[in-house]
């Protein structure tokens, strides 16, 4: 009996090893383990075995069965593995073929620059506010220390609607609105569109954007202004950027300054980009003029602080090395797609 089983097993293993397809394996299974299979036949013949021997024989039959099944399983896995390999090999693609075009839009460079500025100042606790583009003369000029006959009023080439209503020439008007609210302290930036009657050319546009900033509290100093704007310049243009504050004049700040940053292209050596100066003028700033505070109902003996104004297009043009301002308002897809 034992010999018979061993030879059956040997034969099966040989057949399994020789099998070339899943079908052949299946035939082997049926032939050996099926209802009418050889091993099943051995089981059926158990009645001829003596009762003492039966458990032993039974165990031998089961072991043989398990061994064959194990072999069959192994073989089957081998076949499947090969089939999968074959299938995958056939599915090979040329990954260098062009990508499918999923249309994706692009943000305007002005907006990209603005969001960056906003994020920097929001991080320092500034709220972002807005004000009207069509504005009263009072908010655009008078409340900013630019009375009726002030030469600065002419310098700014204002578009007028009526005698008292104009297109704002600066987002500084937003300072006044915010101060009039009376909530203290103030940390705000006000981005927005401004207008000046400049003819369109590579560096001028009758409509452009500014970002105004203001911080008022009990003791905000000119040195805080320097520190804050230096921080801004570093975040905006890179850690190694240096800043320079030069005295300047704005009617609504005193002392006033202009801030230059070291040219981020040539690192201050002087190049075509910075016109050989090594420095690029970025913004105007200063301590809010006491009279401006007063006019908006803030006691300059109690509160003080700084304000600044950045030309958004100027930042965008510099940062993205755009050489003609007109591109910003033409909206050519080939331009916008680059941002």
């Amino acid at each position: 009996m034992r010999e018979k089983l061993e030879s059956m097993m040997k034969k099966s293993i040989e057949e399994i090893n020789a099998a070339e397809s899943l079908d052949v394996l299946n035939d082997i299974r049926v032939k050996m383990l099926g209802k009418k299979g050889e091993l099943t036949a051995v089981l059926k013949s158990m009645k001829d075995v003596s009762p003492e021997e039966r458990p032993k024989v039974g165990q031998m039959v089961n072991e043989t069965r398990e061994a064959i099944e194990e072999k069959l399983k192994e073989a089957k896995e081998r076949f499947e593995e090969e089939a999968l390999k074959h299938k995958l090999a056939n599915e090979k693609i040329d990954v260098t073929l062009p990508a499918k075009k999923i249309p994706v839009g692009h943000r305007h460079p002005n907006t990209i620059a603005l969001e960056e500025i906003e994020d920097i100042f929001i991080g320092m606790g500034y709220e972002v506010v807005e004000g009207p583009e069509v504005e009263y003369d009072y908010y655009n000029f008078e409340a900013l220390n630019i009375p009726a006959d002030h030469p600065a009023k002419d310098e700014q080439d204002t578009f007028y609607i009526t005698k008292d209503i104009l297109l704002r020439t600066q987002t500084s008007s937003c300072q006044v609105h915010r101060m009039e609210e009376g909530r203290m302290p103030i940390r705000m930036i006000a981005p927005g569109r401004v207008f000046r009657s400049d003819e369109v050319d590579a560096t001028h546009s009758p409509s452009f954007h500014q970002v105004e900033g203001m911080a008022i509290d009990k003791d905000i100093t000119f040195s805080d202004l320097k520190g804050t704007l230096a921080e801004f310049a570093k975040e905006m243009f890179g850690e190694d950027v240096k800043v320079k504050f030069r005295p300047h004049h704005f009617p609504f700040t005193e002392p006033s300054a202009e801030m230059d940053v070291s040219c981020f292209k040539c690192k201050g050596k002087g190049c075509r980009f910075c016109k050989g100066e090594g420095w690029i003028e970025i913004l105007g700033c200063g301590q809010v003029h006491p009279h401006v505070l007063e006019m908006s109902g803030i006691d300059p003996n109690e509160y003080q602080g700084f304000a600044f104004g950045v030309g958004l297009e100027r930042i965008a043009l510099l940062k993205y090395e755009i050489d003609d301002m007109r591109l910003l308002y033409e909206n050519d897809k080939r331009f916008l797609d680059q941002f």
Partner: peptide, 22 residues
């Protein structure tokens, strides 16, 4: 101007952010 130190404002902390419109 270049000799004036660079500092950051002290004093009351404030909450920054953008409006619902933005």
């Amino acid at each position: 101007y270049d000799k004036i130190p660079m500092t950051l404002p002290k004093g009351s902390s404030v909450k920054g952010g953008i409006s619902k419109k933005m």
